[in-house]
Amino acid sequence: MSHTRNYIVETYELTKRFGEIIAVNSVSFKVPKGIIYGLIGPNGAGKTTLLRMLVGILKPDGGRGYILGKDITSLSPKDRTRIGYMTQHKALYMDLTARENIDYFARINGVKDPSKRRELVDNIIDLLEIEQWANKLVEHLSGGAQQLVSLACALVHEPEILILDEPTIGINPILRRKFWAYFKSLRDEGKTLIITTHYIEEAERCDTVALMHNGRFIAVGKPDELRALVSKERILTIDILEGIINLDKLKKAEDRLEVKIRIKNNQIIASFKSFDAIPELLSLLKNLGLRIRAIDIHRYSLEDVFTHLISSKGE
């Protein structure tokens, strides 16, 4: 049954209960083709449950969902071969080699022809640069390497959509950057990725981010759009090297400069809307006899946004 062609995943008030707990509560969302869709939220937000429903291994209690235009409650074996699923746990056979694991998952995802399979397995091993581990037993590999092999198992049969549950959990920042480089290149090949994470900085790398909390989507949008939900303001942080900070005098300038100022240790933190305010603020500081060590200007982080959203909506 084909639903809407434009979207790879669509759900309408998808709900899942485990006894008293509503793990996923009326979630409706749409994922267009060729993007990285990030699901972010604290542990227990319902991210994994949502993914398990999408890949058809958990039946929803309410609502509808479609993946690749097919109803998620009646995916055929052939439909499933178009999906790549990487579970939160590494989900590998520890007593098999990396190559044997990858080969097995290619087999059970419909790659029957041995030469074709060999080619695909070699490709993914090349792509993820895991040749040096290919013939080692998975149990002897480091956590990061196992995570790469697990990703390879989800990718090997060249699925159209990748559903990755916390793919970068517990791996070092350098490897994590490498993972995201793969994700971006996969997206650029036209594949769609749905990725859960609880690293805020990873959410910044997604094309669309949904914030999940207590089984609900509490915000969806591009990272910039989400930031705009909170404020268009930027933040200036000034480290003071010498001098006594007189908050009263600074506060008097707030209205004129259209900034908001607070003090934290030896830092002056000012939120502002227009960059025009900055030279004036700096000259004011100079007049007050303060010497500046460093200046930093940045936007609100998603972390700030989510903390804000969760504290306002989550309660």
């Binding site: 074996p77 499933r80 995802n109």
Partner: peptide, 14 residues
């Protein structure tokens, strides 16, 4: 326990 069953269930296996 390792989650390979979950992976198999999500695959084309019945």
């Amino acid at each position: 326990l390792l989650g390979t069953l979950e992976r198999m269930l999500a695959s084309s296996l019945t």
